[in-house]
Simulated assay, not measured.
Amino acid sequence: MLTGGRRLRGTLAFLLTCWKLNLAGAMEFRMSFLLMAGMMVVNNSVWIFFWSLFFQRFEVVNGWSLPDVMMLWAISAGGFGIAATLFGNMNRIAWLTANGQLDVYLVQPKPVLLNVLASRMSVTAIGDAAFSVILYVLFGDGSWLGFAKYALAHVVAAVIFLFFMVIVGSLAFWIGNAEGLTGQMFNAVVSFSTYPTDIFKGWGRVVIFTVVPAGFISYMPIGLLRDAVQWDFLLGALGMSAGIAAFGTWFFYAGLRRYSSGNAIAMRS
Rank of each mutant, 00 (worst) to 15 (best):
residue 3 T to P: 15
residue 14 F to W: 11
residue 14 F to N: 04
residue 17 T to P: 00
residue 19 W to Q: 04
residue 24 A to F: 09
residue 29 F to P: 01
residue 34 L to K: 06
residue 35 L to R: 12
residue 40 M to E: 14
residue 41 V to H: 14
residue 42 V to P: 08
residue 44 N to D: 15
residue 48 I to P: 00
residue 50 F to K: 01
residue 50 F to P: 03
residue 50 F to A: 03
residue 54 F to H: 01
residue 70 M to T: 00
residue 71 M to I: 00
residue 76 S to T: 03
residue 77 A to K: 04
residue 77 A to G: 02
residue 80 F to Q: 09
residue 81 G to D: 03
residue 81 G to Q: 01
residue 84 A to Y: 09
residue 87 F to Q: 02
residue 93 I to G: 01
residue 95 W to K: 08
residue 96 L to S: 08
residue 98 A to Q: 08
residue 106 L to R: 11
residue 107 V to R: 12
residue 112 V to M: 08
residue 113 L to M: 08
residue 114 L to E: 04
residue 120 R to T: 12
residue 121 M to S: 12
residue 123 V to H: 10
residue 131 F to H: 14
residue 136 Y to C: 13
residue 137 V to M: 13
residue 139 F to A: 15
residue 142 G to L: 15
residue 143 S to T: 14
residue 147 F to I: 15
residue 150 Y to C: 10
residue 156 V to Q: 03
residue 157 A to R: 04
residue 161 F to H: 06
residue 161 F to T: 09
residue 163 F to R: 08
residue 166 V to M: 01
residue 172 A to W: 10
residue 177 N to I: 14
residue 184 Q to F: 11
residue 186 F to H: 14
residue 186 F to P: 12
residue 188 A to G: 02
residue 189 V to I: 15
residue 195 Y to S: 09
residue 197 T to D: 14
residue 201 K to M: 10
residue 208 I to Q: 14
residue 209 F to W: 09
residue 210 T to R: 06
residue 213 P to N: 12
residue 214 A to R: 11
residue 215 G to S: 12
residue 224 L to A: 07
residue 229 V to D: 13
residue 230 Q to C: 05
residue 233 F to M: 06
residue 234 L to Y: 10
residue 238 L to F: 03
residue 238 L to C: 02
residue 238 L to S: 02
residue 242 A to V: 15
residue 246 A to H: 01
residue 247 F to M: 05
residue 256 L to F: 03
residue 257 R to F: 02
residue 258 R to W: 09
residue 262 G to E: 06
residue 265 I to H: 14
residue 266 A to K: 09
residue 268 R to S: 09
residue 269 S to E: 15
